[in-house]
Each structure stands twice: as C-alpha cells, then as structure tokens.
C-alpha cells in the first residue's frame, strides 16, 4: 500500500511539472524560431498549412522523424535529453527552429 502511494506521488509530481508546448506550421514556417523547454516536456507540432509537412530532427539530443502529415493534424515529441535540437521540415528545408532542452 505504501509503495502504491509513493508511485502515485511520483507520477503526480511528473504530471505537475511536465509541460506541453504547441508549435504551429503555417505559411511554410514554424511559429517559433527558438523554444526553451525542460527535460520531459512535450512539444506538439501542428500543421495549419494546406501543404503536407514532415517534421524531423537529426540532432544528438533528439533523433526523430514524424513523417508527412497534412492540415489540421498534429504529432508530438517528448524530449528526454538535455541539448540543442534543430528541428526541420524535410519537405521545406527553409522551415527550421531550435529547441533548447534544459534540466
């Protein structure tokens, strides 16, 4: 019983401190050039363009490829490591932003 309470407290603590951020893709640009978040935070990438976008990063601190998705769709990434993460759209290379993940 005591263990269950400890686990519940741990989960609630994490919930209380994890933040969700939203970055839009609109007019062939990310809504933010730079974003600072903490380890464990989640960023949702929302496509508001008619065109499909493909959000990805090849950075050491976060390596992901969300694939192509269209207008009104969103995909999210949880950032687990400290570091600078360059996020780009594979389809439109001029769409770039940097996410700074801190402790």
């Amino acid at each position: 019983m005591k263990m269950k309470i400890i686990i519940m407290c741990f989960l609630m603590t994490n919930l209380a401190y994890a933040q969700n951020f939203v970055v839009n893709q609109k007019g062939l640009a990310f809504s933010e050039d730079n974003l600072t978040i903490q380890v464990g935070d989640i960023v949702s990438f929302v496509n508001q363009d008619e065109a499909f976008h493909n959000v990805y990063s090849l950075s050491d601190a976060a390596f992901f490829d969300l694939g192509s998705y269209g207008k009104g769709k969103e995909k999210e990434v949880e950032f687990d490591e400290v570091g600078e993460v360059v996020v780009e759209c594979a389809v439109h290379p001029s769409m770039q932003m940097t996410i700074s993940v801190i402790e």
């Binding site: 919930l15 209380a16 401190y17 994890a18 933040q19 969700n20 951020f21 939203v22 970055v23 839009n24 609109k26 007019g27 809504s31 933010e32 974003l35 929302v46 508001q48 363009d49 008619e50 065109a51 207008k71």
Partner: peptide, 19 residues
C-alpha cells in the same frame, strides 16, 4: 506554479491556400 498545459501559440484557423 507551472501550468500542466501551456499553449505557446494560439491556433490560427486561417487557411493558407483557400480558393
């Protein structure tokens, strides 16, 4: 206190290429 969910940018519903 940090909020559980923080919306960074409000959702803009205008359409880029609507006829």
């Amino acid at each position: 206190m940090r909020k559980i969910i923080f919306i960074l940018v409000l959702f803009n519903i205008s359409v880029a290429y609507a006829l």
